[in-house]
Amino acid sequence: MRGRSELGVSVLLLLVGVLVLSDTLTMETAANQRGPVGPRTVPVVVGVSLLVVAVVLALDVLRGGRGEGDSGEDAGSEPADWRTVALLAGIFLASAALIDPLGFPITGALLFWGSAYALGSRNLTRDPLIAAVLSMATYAAFNTLLGVPLPGGPLMGVL
């Protein structure tokens, strides 16, 4: 098994694919949400894709395929940027905690803006505007096009 560590990634992808599919196929949906595109469609596509990629990767590794390192950079020569990781983790956890009281439009905007800030963007006029547009577009797409209700929070009466 020496030199075939990619099989571990394949097993991980297989396990995640099985988990996604089992959770998706056992979730309950309301009768008014059923149709050709419902809350199960995307998770089923993702789960099946994970299984396919896991099998293809395993076959490639067993046939002698190997991943190649980056040739243009010294991979791992720079220390990890733990400040960015901590900022992103904090923003994600804050979003999870704030989605019920503030609703998705506000929390989503904070998530998008905070992520852009953590990753280095410092434009204080453009970034919040783009974050608000992305958040509202995501909210509208889920509520209107997919029929998946997201919490509206204090903006529920306005939207």
Rank of each mutant, 00 (worst) to 15 (best):
P105Q: 13
T144C: 01
V133R: 05
F92Q: 03
P43S: 00
L150W: 07
L13C: 11
I99E: 08
L102T: 04
P154M: 08
D23N: 15
A30V: 09
L21N: 10
M156C: 06
L110D: 10
A140C: 00
M1P: 08
G114D: 08
V42S: 06
L110N: 10
V158N: 10
M1I: 00
V48S: 12
F112K: 02
L7E: 09
G69S: 12
P43M: 00
G17R: 01
T125F: 06
P149W: 09
T26F: 00
A140I: 09
G72Q: 12
V16A: 01
S115P: 03
A54G: 02
R2D: 05
V52D: 04
L51G: 13
R4M: 14
R34N: 02
V18L: 00
D74W: 13
A97W: 01
L88S: 00
L150A: 10
L15T: 05
S115M: 15
A132V: 14
L119M: 15
A141I: 03
A58F: 04
G120A: 04
T84Q: 05
E78C: 01
E73A: 08
R63L: 07
A89I: 09
F104D: 02
L150N: 08
F112L: 11
P128C: 10
G152S: 07
R34E: 14
V9N: 11
A141S: 00
G64P: 00
Y117D: 08
A109C: 08
V16H: 00
L111I: 02
G157E: 13
L155I: 01
A86N: 01
P36M: 14
G76S: 12
G108H: 05
A97K: 06
M1W: 04
T29H: 09
R122K: 04
L13R: 07
A31T: 14
N32S: 14
V20P: 04
Y139G: 00
F142Y: 06
L87M: 12
A96G: 03
D23K: 15
A118E: 11
P128H: 01
L59Q: 11
A141M: 04
V42H: 04
V85E: 10
P105H: 06
G47R: 13
V158Y: 01
L25E: 13
A58C: 05
V61I: 10
V9P: 05
G69A: 13
G38C: 11
R66I: 09
G114W: 05
G120P: 03
E6D: 15
L25M: 14
Y139V: 06
A97D: 04
P36S: 15
S22F: 09
I106N: 09
L150T: 12
V37H: 02
S95W: 03
A118V: 00
V53A: 15
L15P: 05
V55T: 11
V44Q: 11
G72M: 14
V9L: 13
M156T: 14
G147T: 10
Y117G: 03
G3L: 00
A97I: 07
P43D: 02
S115D: 11
V148Q: 09
R63F: 03
S121G: 04
P128A: 07
S22N: 12
A116R: 06
E78D: 12
D81T: 05
E28K: 13
T107Q: 08
T138E: 08
Y117Q: 09
N32V: 15
